[in-house]
Design a protein around this nucleic acid. Structure first.
Lengths: 205, 205
DNA sequence: GTCTATAATGGGATAGAC
DNA sequence: GTCTATCCCATTATAGAC
């Protein structure tokens, strides 16, 4: 492994760590497992990064960024607010189903960060970004459906993140697709009640 | 420590483990930390229990039982379905606020169990009990408010657990009391839409 | 600059003295 | 039956050979 900049090794290690955590869990993500996944000798680890916890900081940032990419695809075409919410939640659950380990990795990392003084600041920032991301999606959805939300968009965003987290945790625990689908239908009914016709109608192009 | 039955030691170890996990996190709950908390010599650990993972099984059952006790107190007097839902969610969040570590311990244990083949069956059972517990509360609430729920009670129960999990995770991450309170208000609005007057009016005593 | 080899620590589990 | 003392392994981190 000659001549690879430390910054690149660092990024490669973070990606490898995420792969290991998604596959085997955080407890299994030892420095050895991580360098094995990255195809590096053990000593490269501390050459590129000061400590395991410091690498986990990178991993969390990686995960948050990835979540942003995944969320971008959730804004499907829909005729009604209910279908839009329902589609977004189902899309999110499909994403979880397609790679449950990755989603579980997020939760494990968040909980670990909360317990680790050097990382304890990350979860708040992580959720701030989630809320912001979902708020943007809600704004875009309102615009595309020509509706407005009857409660502040940041409030609704937090409620949507609450639902995705809760749906994910329960599904990870019992893998009950049918129950999750039903919960999503009811949640879509409940949340779409916050959509209403705009006070100032949009100009039709 | 003379003459204490193994079953009692086992229970004491499970309680001590939960104390340690709530205070310092699952990763810090080593056999040594657990016996120190329980005031026992290290060798008592494997005398009472075959392995650390086996003790964690007991701990999860302990946690689920404790959650049941906590939930029992959430059925406050309320005039309307909205206030009942709102009161229950606020009561739950107060419980989380009063001992965040204990709540975090639950999540950590669930995630760890999902990653551990010998414990992988527990989370489904855990959530089955939560759903059942909340379903009972919803039935009791409907009866006391003289309403009925417009969707099946098990469906609504899953949605309520989804909300409590989601609210808890976000609050643990950002400790934003105001935002959590607002989210609860909106959630109560949304969920109380599933309450309606009973088709068969209850007999007034 | 890179990696082999090893240090130093802390872990789960147990043998054997009392 | 109980617990001290220890085993042995895996871990993070690093010293020093190339």
């Amino acid at each position: 492994m000659p001549r690879i900049p430390a910054s690149e090794r660092r990024a490669a290690l973070a990606r490898a760590a995420l792969t290991v955590i998604a596959r085997d869990g955080l407890a299994a993500a030892t420095t050895r497992a991580i360098v094995a996944e990255a195809g590096m000798p053990l000593a490269s680890f501390h050459y590129a990064v000061a400590s395991r916890d410091e690498l986990l900081r990178d991993v969390i940032e990686l995960v948050v960024a990835a979540e942003g990419v995944a969320a971008g695809g959730l804004l499907a075409q829909a005729e009604t607010p209910r279908d839009a919410i329902r589609g977004a939640l189902n899309g999110y659950l499909d994403h979880v189903r397609s790679d449950p380990g990755a989603e579980q990795a997020m939760f494990e990392l968040t909980q670990y960060a909360l317990r680790t003084p050097e990382l304890a600041d990350l979860p708040a920032e992580q959720y701030r970004r989630y809320h912001e991301l979902v708020a943007d999606l809600l704004e875009a959805g309102a615009s595309s459906l020509n509706i407005e939300w009857s409660i502040p968009v940041p409030d609704l965003a937090r409620l949507m993140v609450t639902l995705t987290d809760g749906l994910t945790l329960a599904w990870l625990a019992d893998r009950d697709d049918a129950a999750a689908g039903v919960a999503i239908d009811h949640a879509a009914d409940a949340i779409s009640a916050f959509a209403r016709a705009p006070r100032i109608p949009a100009v039709i192009a």
